[in-house]
């Protein structure tokens, strides 16, 4: 993961920590934050590639209206990362193009 894209964390009020996995790397997120925030903090960019042309995209609006933050969250493809809160043990990967369905068989 290119650490040079990581968003910086300011001094925060007390929050429980949550361990999640982003693209195979274990990272610490704060309880109550969104997956998109955790991903930006981790420095991952792009966070998806489009189904149309395969170009890279990353979260744009953070409030659920642009659908640029679609990622694979706990095996669920095309999930809005900015509308999903982190939880312990969550596994997050880049959404590559169109989503898979029906598991690995396809």
């Amino acid at each position: 993961m290119a650490a040079d894209f990581s968003f910086n964390r300011l001094p925060c009020n007390e929050r429980a920590e949550v361990e999640i996995t982003i693209e195979g790397h274990k990272v610490i997120a704060l309880e109550g934050e969104t997956v998109a925030a955790a991903v930006m903090h981790s420095g991952l960019r792009p966070t998806r590639t489009t189904a149309v042309s395969g170009t890279g995209r990353a979260p744009y609006c953070m409030m659920g209206v642009c659908f640029e933050c679609l990622m694979n969250i706990d095996g669920k493809p095309n999930t809005q990362a900015c509308m999903t809160e982190v939880s312990e043990g969550m596994v997050i990967t880049v959404q590559q193009g169109a989503r898979e369905i029906g598991g690995d068989r396809l």
């Binding site: 189904a51 095309n78 169109a98 369905i101």
Partner: peptide, 12 residues
């Protein structure tokens, strides 16, 4: 007639 459209998925 009512029609539903679901997101793009890999060919199945």
């Amino acid at each position: 007639g009512q029609v539903l459209i679901a997101e793009r998925v890999r060919p199945f």
